[in-house]
Amino acid sequence: MLTSDFDYHLPPELIASEPLAERSASRMMVLHRKEGRIEHRMFREIGEYISREAGDMLVLNDTRVVPARYFTNQGYEVLRLNPLTPTRWRCMVKPGKKFRLGHTVPIGEATGTVVEIMEDNGDRIIEFDRVVDESKHGHLALPHYMGRDDQPADRERYQTVFARSEGSIAAPTAGLHFTPDVLAPLPHTFVTLHVGVGTFQPVKVENIADHKMHSEVYEVSEATAQAVQTAKRVIPVGTTALRTLETVARDHGKVIATQGSTDIFIHPGFDFRVAGGLLTNFHLPKSTLIMLVSAFAGKELVMQAYEEAIRERYRFFSYGDCMLIV
């Protein structure tokens, strides 16, 4: 299949650059796979589709977004991909010519030095003489399509209410709709997958089979493994939770307690072993995420649903509305 098969035209005013005043006030498109039927509901009505008595189990990603975007004292950009230690970071930098080997990188009171340049992708290893003050100099790396820098309010709103384990650059956005009151009565459990910068990377190849996915670390607890094994229908909340579960089932035959890293690329033709439903946001054209959703619900139905979402003026992307696929 071609990357262009997953393209669609989105009017720019439908991109949600700000969150709604209330998390659970989002709209929710419900996609019924077997009947090819579409419903228009509100997210707060999700309890009508999830039943403890029927053996349903929501699986959410409890990763916590960390401030990963920094600016040097000269205004150059540093995106921390991985803190190898508190003072040794693997980073993407901009502009690259200002971060040559041996160049100093001052951020506030801390002074870093470029000690290594990765040959495969140009990432820099920067060693600092002290810990950089994250609370003073760190920014959330909001997606580029929001067209704005992070604001203080994003520290709370670009974070799920159940976020626990620090390590993500981007939020698992399907979880942003939940409030404690909405989540509490629903059967649920958690996995952890730390969302990396690759979630923002476009697919640059013409044939999707040639695309190489980024790798992200995950963890599944014993309690979660038991909850998933005994559930009659597992409904991942977001593509990150789904990718975690399907990776573990692929590698071990079923969902067990484990940890590791995954670069699984789910596109049409994939054999799902775990997911029986999916809650997800509306994704960018030609992205690996819309390919994953198309694999789960069928490309033709998904593209039809996106056309209808545009007609009905749904809000798209990270701070936008959601789709429940059953």
Rank of each mutant, 00 (worst) to 15 (best):
L2M: 06
D5R: 06
D5G: 01
P11I: 11
E13N: 13
I15E: 08
A16Y: 11
P19K: 06
P19L: 07
E22Q: 15
R23N: 08
A25E: 13
R27H: 13
M29T: 08
V30C: 13
L31Q: 02
K34N: 14
E35F: 00
I38P: 00
I38L: 15
H40P: 09
R41P: 08
R44F: 15
I46N: 12
I46E: 12
I46A: 14
I50G: 11
I50M: 12
M57E: 13
L60G: 06
T63W: 01
P67I: 00
R69Y: 08
Y70M: 12
N82R: 14
N82L: 13
L84V: 15
T85P: 12
P86N: 10
P86I: 08
T87A: 00
R88G: 00
R90Y: 01
M92E: 07
M92V: 07
K97Q: 09
F99G: 03
F99I: 04
H103R: 14
H103T: 09
V105F: 01
P106C: 05
A110I: 04
T113E: 15
V114E: 04
V115W: 07
E116Y: 14
I117H: 00
I117P: 00
M118D: 13
D123T: 14
I125A: 08
I126Q: 05
G138N: 04
H144I: 04
Y145N: 02
M146V: 08
R148V: 14
D149W: 04
Q151Y: 03
Q151M: 12
E156A: 11
Q159F: 10
T160S: 13
T160I: 11
F162Y: 15
R164C: 04
R164G: 09
G167H: 08
S168V: 08
I169T: 03
A170K: 06
A171D: 04
P172K: 05
A174Q: 11
A174Y: 11
H177W: 09
F178L: 12
T179S: 15
V182N: 05
P185M: 07
P187H: 11
H188R: 11
T189H: 07
F190Y: 13
V191F: 06
T192I: 11
T192M: 10
L193N: 10
V195D: 00
G196D: 13
G196C: 10
F200R: 05
K204C: 06
K204T: 15
A209V: 05
M213G: 11
M213N: 11
M213S: 10
Y218E: 06
V220Y: 02
S221M: 11
A223Q: 15
T230P: 01
T230N: 12
R233Y: 05
I235P: 01
V237F: 08
R243I: 01
L245N: 07
E246A: 09
E246G: 09
R250K: 13
H252C: 12
V255Q: 05
I256S: 02
A257H: 06
S261W: 03
T262P: 10
D263L: 00
I264Q: 04
L278P: 00
L278N: 01
T280K: 01
F282K: 02
L284G: 00
P285Y: 08
P285L: 07
S287R: 05
I290R: 01
S294A: 15
G298N: 13
E300C: 04
L301S: 09
V302E: 02
M303F: 14
Y306A: 10
E307P: 00
E308I: 04
I310Y: 09
E312Q: 15
F317E: 13
S318W: 07
S318G: 05
C322F: 12
V326P: 07
